[in-house]
Design a protein around this nucleic acid. Structure first.
Lengths: 227, 227
DNA sequence: GCAAAAGTGTTGTGTATACACCCATGT
DNA sequence: ACATGGGTGTATACACAACACTTTTGC
């Protein structure tokens, strides 16, 4: 860090969030349709300017609350994007975060600055403003890499879930199919799942057992790793 | 990203670099002794303000060239630190990078803004200004994690090196000892090493064979992984 | 009783680990 | 000849991958 603090011009700084959601079938990203230039009426990930009295996390939470109606969700810093021309108006840095939410717990609503807030499957993204396509791509890579050595996937599911649902989530994130017996063996022997003893009823087949994520059992676990 | 571009106050942004060096024995970090307040005469990692026409990488290279005499080295973005009070003067964000260099290829020299530029072994760091102790800690974790799935360690060595030297580097980074035969087996079967056919002479024991990193062989290799 | 998904073990294959001696060189 | 680090192979344990049938439930 430089010693002097002469008044160099300073860039604007935004916090932008890649919010992943999973509806039981598809992995989606939350996008917002812009009302104003630049990129008017195009889609972008939700973001906004950092205020001087805010940490990045505070900004991210404010943005997600006001622009999409999301509160208190899992957030992690992804990368900071700083290409000189990434905003056509002036120099704007973007500290990108990624987030995982269970869409059924929230009703996304567009804030003032947006026409609409909507979930888009990763495979059907519209044209995106700024460098947000790249941001999403980096986020997806990170999610893929991360899910195998940290039990973060649970953020995307209901509190109680079946092993088949969990497996399908992993298959969706990793974009590959997984052997059922091997998956169950591995995930159970990590010890992070708690069998609730309950079963999901009302399905038109054998009632599957419901599990929960056991946060305490994970704390301090060094060797969580699937595959 | 927000639609409106009202003139919010903007934070200052610095790029700070954790530069690792390895002298054949010890893993060290390059530090600079400050001339001015705050943290006058304390040590910090080299850094400086981002200029409006610079990318982060450009800034990092400028800083390293002017403050420490280093040029064209391996750089990777680490994390962005934004705690509100991390600089006592005003709001300053730090986009941190980490770098790997072979100290014997460079003569570090203090620039104008520093009393001195000096290598400190990781185990003997002085009291550090700002939040730089945390930054170094994060960088060390990253280096540890990264070295096992990407062949970045070579940046720290001479162009030609012996397997024993390479092993010792890995042991130093990972802070654990490694079985010699297993290490050789694994690193050789990755295929990223090229035996030069030369031997290091003038040592007071059997002349060891010299290897080089084979960049072409690594390109496109998906499965580089040690341990 | 049929359709549909849940649940369950074993075996082979490959990878990781542990381990000890001879070789080449300089002094 | 001796001291120093260089260089090499095998046996065992463990982890991973492949694989098919029975059970439960709703209709």
């Amino acid at each position: 860090m430089s010693n002097d603090l002469h008044n160099y011009p300073t860039p604007s700084v935004t916090v932008d969030c890649v919010v992943f959601g999973y509806d039981g079938t598809t992995l989606s990203v939350l996008l917002i349709q812009r009302k104003e230039a630049p990129f008017e009426s195009m889609w972008t990930i939700p973001g906004g300017f950092l205020w001087m009295e805010e940490t990045f996390e505070t900004t991210a939470n404010r943005i997600l609350a006001t622009k999409a109606g999301l509160q208190g969700i899992f957030l992690e810093q992804l990368y900071t994007f700083g290409a000189i021309e990434r905003d056509p108006r002036k120099r704007v840095l973007s500290v990108a975060y990624f987030a995982l939410v269970n869409p059924s717990n929230y009703q996304v609503v567009a804030g003032d600055a947006a026409h609409e807030a909507k979930w888009f499957p990763l495979s059907e993204l519209p044209a995106l403003g700024f460098d947000h396509q790249e941001v999403i791509q980096v986020a997806q890579q990170r999610l893929k890499a991360k899910v195998i050595y940290q039990p973060i996937g649970f953020e995307l599911l209901d509190e109680q879930f079946t092993l088949t649902e969990l497996q399908h989530l992993y298959e969706t994130i990793l974009e590959q199919s997984i052997d059922k017996r091997n998956f169950r063996k591995k995930i159970l022997e990590t010890g992070v799942l708690k069998n609730t003893g309950l079963k999901r009823t009302g399905v038109k087949n054998r009632a599957p057992e419901l599990y929960e994520f056991n946060k305490e059992a994970y704390q301090g676990k060094v060797n969580f790793s699937l595959f």
